[in-house]
């Protein structure tokens, strides 16, 4: 066995690695579930905007002398609400408005960070995450968020599907469309804020969106799609951490890289299945 592999296996006995693994798996499940619904509602760019705005939340926390996680969750919720109100009231298209908000928030946060005397967090950690720095205390809100998100997912399954199929059809069946939209945006904001620690500001939208894209290529039912997205989120966190330990690379980018590789594999597998099916039906027709 390669010495790198042996040393990486022994790393799993270290508490910091175990905490990273638990945090990564919880974040992966959360990102997978919320991403699966967000992708169906075409909210991928919304997740990107929330991710970049989170840097502004962290900068403000540092400026006010607060611990970043204390301010980040309410800041993400507030920013999601602001985006939703602007999207509802503005005559600009959604992509133009999100791009504007995203760049504005990023620019302001970089200015704030550079004006802080002796910033207490490195830009590298903020941009690409610091999953190995997860403390036990960070896992408690993550676990609570997981319980709330999964419970809401089960309770609102019918509503989520009907809203994704057609909001008017959903309303005609008695679904409170606006309430469920608001709750989903809130959960998306919280999941993004909670997962920033693991994968950083720049990779967060990929972390949320890619598992859903992989699952979408492989699923022929809603239940399989959602479960697969959550499973892929968790699996890529484990494989990414393992790859990070073996190749001595930053963990956040490794997690997202694993997700991207899984997407390519799913794409190829999907094409192969389609070609095989077409060839078999041509044979049968002959």
């Amino acid at each position: 066995m390669a010495p790198e592999l042996i040393s990486s296996l022994s790393l799993w006995q270290e508490p910091f690695m175990q905490r990273a693994l638990i945090g990564g798996v919880i974040s992966g499940i959360l990102g997978g579930w919320v991403g699966s619904i967000a992708v169906l509602r075409q909210l991928s760019f919304f997740a990107e905007a929330l991710g970049q705005a989170s840097l502004l939340g962290i900068s403000l926390a540092l400026l006010l002398g607060l611990s970043p996680p204390v301010l980040l969750w309410p800041f993400a919720l507030g920013f999601a609400w602001l985006l939703r109100e602007l999207l509802k009231r503005s005559s600009l298209s959604a992509d133009a408005l999100l791009s504007l908000m995203c760049s504005g928030a990023l620019a302001l946060s970089v200015v704030l960070l550079s004006s802080l005397p002796g910033a207490r967090l490195s830009l590298q950690q903020l941009l690409f995450g610091d999953i190995l720095g997860i403390a036990w205390v960070d896992l408690i809100p993550l676990a609570l968020l997981l319980v709330v998100t999964l419970a809401y997912g089960v309770i609102s399954r019918r509503a989520q599907i009907l809203i994704s199929v057609d909001p008017v059809l959903a309303r005609s069946r008695g679904v409170a469309v606006e309430t469920h939209r608001l709750i989903l945006l809130g959960l998306l904001a919280l999941v993004v804020a909670a997962s920033i620690k693991a994968v950083g500001v720049l990779l967060i939208s990929g972390f949320v969106v890619i598992p859903a894209c992989v699952a979408r290529l492989l699923s022929r039912s809603f239940n399989v799609y959602v479960l697969l997205a959550a499973g892929i989120g968790a699996l890529s966190a484990v494989l990414g951490l393992f790859g990070s330990a073996v190749f001595n690379q930053p963990s956040g980018p490794m997690v997202v890289l694993v997700q991207a590789l899984l997407f390519v594999m799913a794409l190829l597998a999907g094409r192969w299945v389609a070609q095989t099916t077409t060839a078999a039906s041509v044979d049968r027709a002959r």
Partner: peptide, 16 residues
């Protein structure tokens, strides 16, 4: 039961 004019379904909506 009410059916709207057109459903807003996208390309590969994973629903059987």
């Amino acid at each position: 039961a009410y059916l709207p004019q057109k459903l807003l379904l996208d390309g590969r909506f994973p629903l059987s």
